[in-house]
Design a protein around this nucleic acid. Structure first.
Lengths: 188, 188
DNA sequence: TGTACATCAGTGAACGCGCGTTCACTGATGTAC
DNA sequence: TGTACATCAGTGAACGCGCGTTCACTGATGTAC
């Protein structure tokens, strides 16, 4: 958990490989070659290849959520949502490796396997998403936004953002369309 | 291309493995075991493992589009859209293997590799999607739907459907939310 | 009608590579007494 | 202050497995003459 030069070198290398060649490009041997950290040391810190990806997942999710949180202040809801979309897509644009962690690493097996680590990852994810849910709920009860169940906020209302991120639709025009769509779905 | 008992047996087995264990579960050895078709025969018909997945992609996409096309008739746009969402999610529910082909098979490498086969697959995809785009465009010019650029229709306007499909949000409540969101984004 | 040849679906043993992982080890840094 | 031991980060050679793929082959079905 605690950041360490070695630990960071491994994660940085994994992130770079992820950005270049996707999840399949992240092999222990390539991390070793790129980071200069021995394979044994990788196992010492992360336990397995999946452990590396899981650590990345937690970090990246926290990073993204921290970025998004900056968009949610007390401006009019419409402005905040516009800003949220802009920040999200900018983050994807600027951090292709991190975006690949969230959008391209297959997690079903990992998450469903129910190991302690993966449970913690899911838990962390919930915790991190909480502020966003809270902001939206507050605006909903204030009548500024349409009432939407919590569980639908991220996967359905924000779906255009996720889908645009996944398909690499990161242009200004795409951002415009995404923002319009999300706002249309939230408008009271 | 032409359907053949052997060919079908391979694709059926691959589909079943896909539904059970995802893309990683689709190995030549397991297809051989499940279908009874020898590995050599698989290579005779499909050329490679990727060839099998590519053939599945073309078939599944055509299947889904044919299903969706039934929703697009001359009823009021709102009803058609509601129906479109319902049929899409029902299809995912009923064909987990096929849904996995569209939503979980990593295609970047394949599609970007630019082989003749993959080019054809992409082309087929465009062709198959055409009716849907045409229907929406007609309703847009008729003033029944908001004007949205063609390229944004599938990835952004229909994003809630795709995201729900990907995350397995297939309940009646989820369907409700997805339909509401898509309609909100399309309403004139 | 018979013969020779080409084509194509299908077989299954074998290969080689790359992968994640293991393990015995080194060396540095506390910690107890 | 010195000694003995425990702990922990880090090393790198080695292993074994599973994978996609190859290839020499069989047998059936056209096709030409």
């Amino acid at each position: 958990m605690a950041p360490t030069p070695t630990r960071d070198a491994v994660l940085d290398a994994a992130l770079q490989l992820l950005a270049e060649d996707g999840p399949g490009g992240v092999t222990i041997a390539r991390i070793t070659g790129l980071s200069g950290v021995s394979n044994g040391s990788i196992y010492h810190h992360f336990g397995s290849r999946e452990g590396v990806l899981l650590a990345l997942l937690v970090d990246c999710f926290a990073d993204l959520v921290a970025t998004l949180a900056q968009a949610l202040d007390d401006r009019p809801a419409r402005e905040c949502i516009r800003d949220l979309v802009a920040r999200h897509l900018a983050w994807v644009r600027e951090h292709p490796g991190k975006a690949a962690v969230l959008y391209r690493v297959p997690l079903d097996a990992t998450v469903l396997s129910g190991t302690a680590d993966s449970q913690r990852a899911v838990h962390t994810k919930d915790l991190a998403a909480a502020p966003l849910v809270r902001w939206m709920r507050a605006r909903q009860t204030a009548g500024e936004l349409r009432s939407v169940p919590d569980w639908a906020l991220d996967p359905i209302v924000l779906a255009p953002v996720h889908e645009a991120a996944r398909r690499g639709l990161l242009s200004a025009e795409a951002e415009e369309q995404v923002a319009a769509m999300v706002w249309a779905g939230l408008e009271a």
